[in-house]
Design a protein around this nucleic acid. Structure first.
Lengths: 310, 310
DNA sequence: CTCGTTGATACGCCGAACATCTGGACGCCC
DNA sequence: GGGCGTCCAGATGTTCGGCGTATCAACGAG
């Protein structure tokens, strides 16, 4: 059974005439008769009643005609679809976001990408820590990851997007919230809300480094998994926190953001893809995303921060 | 593009290995490589990334794989379906009923056929006069017709199912309804409810014949198109009527049925199909229907009743 | 560095699909 | 009613392409 049999049968069924059908197919009439007969023999069903004067479909032939048409159309469609997938016009892209960038990037990217690539299915996964994104990228469940470097893995390409300073999140009622900026050392005795330490959060490490640099280590520490939860905890007066500056796009009543005076601690935001990623769809989405955030540049051989401890 | 290409591609995609796929397809490896390559060339899309160590699908290939699987499954299904249609297991049968048999036959047949042929779609059309059924049978919009003979047409097979006497329909309050049976002559001066004369109703002709045989012609005649309307009109006291005996299965409050004393006027019920009907589905449905109604016998060359007058 | 594995290429062969020719059946027209 | 045209099916020769065998090139493993 080959598509040729279906094409020939459809032509005969539509013309109800072997001669005209053969002409339409640009073949002679005898082979057409042969192939249709072969099709019937293969199916074990008579599809056409032939007489020298007229050709007409049997009930089974009529049903088979509809199916055959659908199959031939499906073959064409499948080919065209493959071309479109290859051109990056349709498909599916899975994008992960680090927690502290979730609330700034996701809404913006979702809106822009949905507008630019209406036939591309987007899977946006927020609140993913760097190690989770790395393994998801490697195993293919993620195509693009916006993460906090370092993320050095032989199978990944990582490109730096920007650096941003750490800022303080304070309850609005907190005395230090009255000032324009706060000095980190003044937070020495405050309880801290942090990202979970055991998941290798890069921001968690950066916060500890910053504190250590001004000579203290946060005493009471509450760990929360999500950025929104962290800010809500601060708003509830449970403590203070240090977060990347872009988190201030997340406005929660009762919490306020203040720059850190005299502290230069920064965290980076990078975008990672599989090395040798050839998908034109990923390339297009990536190009659009980087356009939004300012040009990205490849991460140099030297890591920007030392690898996480533990 | 042939199904072979799809089959080969699916095998390679599932095995991710040209050698094993070739083995599964019972061909050698080189032609498999050739055909897959030809498929890609035809589509203009690379479906597989090959290296000497591993074969994997591109994004376009993954999508095409799904489509190809669906197409191959559809080809098989279409073949199986054609066999089932040919065997009469699935399909569609259109059955017409003469008005006076509608209310007895339709419920019974619908129940029995639906139970015996669950995958056969039934179109049951009641209240069809003989000429309508004949033309519908000839033009193919009807497959089986339960009609009142005569229905002589070169393209039709007509088989007699049974004969039934005419009986009277009277308003319950009518004086003659008190008797066990009525004499037709006693209805001489009653208004008659009849089937429409201008549509060549066989029952209409039989009623007029019966009246004429006892020496009168109904004076006031109301014509109605449907049997149920006819009985309702009688129940409403608008007149009396003669109908085939099987109509008494239609019970309407206010109307009562009485046999005709001393009158032997009968009408026949026959089943008609296209001559040379080869559909096994029609044959099966017909066999089941005739089994219900007692064996049918072919109508003899001589018509059972003379052709209807104009 | 060598060997084994794997996909791609080269080439000859056989089969299948196709074209030409022919036959037989059915309508149509004169 | 007989001749003629139309149309599908069968027979035969030819050509094209898919397949198998042999071989090569690339990459990994030991």
């Amino acid at each position: 059974m080959e598509l040729r049999h279906l094409r020939y049968f459809v032509a005969v069924a539509e013309e109800c005439h072997f001669g005209r059908a053969a002409e339409r197919l640009h073949i002679a009439q005898p082979p057409l008769s042969q192939q249709v007969k072969a099709l019937e023999a293969d199916l074990g069903v008579v599809l056409l009643t032939r007489s020298t004067r007229k050709v007409e479909l049997t009930a089974a032939g009529a049903r088979y005609l509809e199916r055959a048409r659908a199959i031939l159309a499906a073959v064409d469609e499948a080919g065209e679809e493959a071309v479109r997938v290859d051109a990056g016009e349709i498909g599916r892209v899975s994008i992960g976001f680090t927690g502290s960038a979730t609330y700034e990037l996701v809404p913006t990217l979702a809106r822009v990408l949905a507008a630019d690539f209406p036939d591309v299915e987007l899977e946006l996964r927020g609140e993913m820590l760097t190690p989770d994104q790395v393994s998801a990228l490697v195993d293919g469940s993620l195509d693009i990851g916006f993460l906090r470097p370092p993320a050095r893995h032989p199978d990944l390409d990582v490109r730096l997007l920007r650096r941003e300073p750490l800022i303080a999140v304070l309850p609005e009622a907190h005395p230090l919230a009255a000032a324009e900026a706060v000095r980190l050392a003044d937070l020495r005795d405050e309880p801290f809300i942090c990202y979970p330490s055991h998941h290798r959060s890069v921001v968690y490490e950066a916060v500890l480094d910053a504190c250590q640099r001004v000579g203290f280590r946060p005493s009471e520490v509450v760990e929360v998994a999500e950025t929104s939860t962290l800010v809500v905890f601060v708003a509830a007066g449970l403590g203070v926190a240090l977060v990347p500056a872009s988190v201030q796009h997340l406005k929660i009543t009762g919490a306020t953001y203040r720059p850190l005076a005299g502290t230069t601690e920064e965290v980076a935001l990078a975008v990672a893809t599989r090395a040798g990623e050839q998908s034109p769809l990923v390339a297009r989405v990536l190009g659009r995303a980087e356009g939004l955030l300012g040009g990205a540049r490849p991460v140099a051989g030297r890591p920007m921060r030392r690898a996480p401890r533990r």
